[in-house]
Write a protein that binds this DNA or RNA. Structure first.
Lengths: 324, 324
DNA sequence: TTGTACGCGTTATCAA
DNA sequence: TTGATAACGCGTACAA
């Protein structure tokens, strides 16, 4: 493959001039620019970007850390990231880590290696302190609220959103309320548990351990929840379910078993998924696409000089449909 | 940041020795290796990978071209790609192009630029001839069957799979069969239309244009199909629907309108999606995860020397549930 | 087993 | 407006 030196030689100019043409610098005469462009065309030349990356210290790429792309939640966030990256001509390196800390650290090491200009952590098994150690190597944005940190965050207010849902159910007259959580050791799980218990305390409602169900990740887990509920001596009359897809499993199985929804059991989902639209599930929209887009915007800002950590809270809103 | 030269100086060895240690080459004495490693540790040194990429001519990255990650189909394929890439320590650059040809060409240009070692095209708006022009710059794998090409392909036999579904419905006694297609100008649309018409001809069935419905992409499009069917004078008794999520829309709306499934209308989906499991939709599993994994395997093979184009057909199978 | 010196392809610097 | 040359940081042929 031809290189810049050869172009310069054949065009009869210096490599500097060729470089200037390539980078649209001023101070190149029309004539020389034309000759250089013609030569580039003739030799079918393109830059070796690795050399550019080496000398400039930039790569035009950002890494995204997430456990698995194959879920509604993450694919929407990445969609937002990808669209924003596309408009800024940036590359997105997808790092599916399955929550393996070693793999996540490898991604952060890419920052040290200069392979990427920044890292967006959508979800992680790493502790904030660990992440914080890497900010000297480049910008990091996390999609989780982890208190006051040296790196930027863009996040959903899980506490407030969940509490909002609980209050909504309460406002509808429900007093026997339970909920389904995703991964029990997920970062937002304890926040929601907190919100739940504070809610019960404030309203003077009794805490039923049985009505708090963990590790509901897939549709089938929702089905399982429906069966559990049916077997309970004392049943909740309303459930908040993390993820409309899990809520869908719950609703479909509950109805199959003859339960009427929302009369016998009100169900409120999360995420505003297509399946929720289809089944008319009342849900809390938490702006996942915007989260991705915002995360990219912030990291892009950092790459281009703004150094102060940003903390961005996202809006949420209840979408009223027919399961509450 | 420290570089290899400084490590060499401080450790009292040559840069070659440091490089050998970094790359786990033999012919380094235990003592020197120890000193080098200690120095690396002390100075908190890591390689600048851009320099490595420049000198080796390799980047350890592969680009993935697809229109949008936010769909079941693509996120499963990418999941397969990502898992395979992870085990081989390869990076995946996600190029969401929205089917914009210019963006797709930019990705192929990354191959010329030496930014990546290969390209996996999951879905594209480009013509095979256009893609073929880029094979001189590096390995390309496409997830579409485009006849005899100079690049590798891994694909689902759309014709056979669709025909299999039609025959299955025929075997169940259905004679009035229609189908829903995704994007009408998608690459597989014409293949399926072909299969459909050949099927009708062979079985001596009449072709009803109304029973062939295009551009069914989202759940809501399935809902729309249900309404259309109900308004028809002459209605099909069985439908094959591209994508279980669209089938779900169709089924839910049809039942809402009082139609009984499968008695009045048999529905067969595609893709074996979670929503299909949930609703008990009979479907054709087309091994999307395996497609991604296989695509990575092939491109990885090409990167490591195997130059002959590979053509891999994927299996498919009907999963019998309760909507046929 | 070790080290010297060159090359990878580009941009930055500085002088003209 | 142009160009010579240094610099980016690393791997590796070749010599020792």
């Amino acid at each position: 493959m031809a290189n810049i030196k050869e172009i310069a030689r054949i065009a009869g100019v210096s490599v500097t001039t060729v470089s200037r043409v390539l980078n649209n610098h001023p101070y190149v005469s029309k004539e020389k620019r034309a000759v250089v462009l013609k030569t580039i065309e003739q030799l079918n030349y393109t830059r070796n970007m690795n050399a550019v990356h080496l000398i400039t210290g930039r790569t035009g790429a950002v890494a995204v850390v997430l456990p698995s792309i194959n879920s509604f939640y993450f694919s929407v966030v990445v969609d937002g990231l990808a669209q924003a990256a596309l408009t800024e001509q940036y590359r997105l390196i997808l790092c599916q880590t399955n929550y393996v800390p070693e793999e996540e650290l490898k991604v952060l090491d890419m920052l040290r290696n200069k392979e990427i200009d920044g890292v967006v952590i959508v979800s992680t098994a790493l502790k904030p302190e660990t992440i914080e150690q890497y900010i000297t190597y480049g910008p990091i944005v996390a999609c989780q609220n982890s208190g006051e940190r040296q790196y930027s965050t863009v996040y959903i207010e899980h506490y407030a959103a969940f509490r909002h849902g609980l209050d909504y159910l309460y406002g509808k007259g429900h007093r026997r309320i339970g909920y389904c959580e995703g991964r029990q050791n997920g970062s937002s799980a304890s926040i929601r548990q907190n919100a739940f218990q504070n809610f019960l305390a404030e309203k003077g409602l009794r805490f039923e351990k049985e009505w708090m169900i963990f590790d509901c990740v897939r549709e089938e887990d929702g089905v399982e929840v429906a069966r559990k509920l049916l077997e309970m001596q004392s049943r909740p009359e309303a459930m908040i379910v993390s993820g409309d897809h899990v809520a869908a499993g719950l609703i479909i199985e509950a109805r199959k078993q003859g339960m009427s929804i929302p009369e016998e059991l009100a169900v409120m989902g999360f995420d505003n998924q297509p399946i929720g639209r289809l089944l008319g599930i009342t849900t809390i929209d938490n702006q996942l696409y915007q989260m991705g887009a915002a995360a990219f915007g912030i990291i892009y800002g950092h790459i281009n000089g703004s150094s102060l950590p940003v903390t961005r809270k996202l809006e949420y809103r209840i979408i009223e449909r027919s399961t509450v």
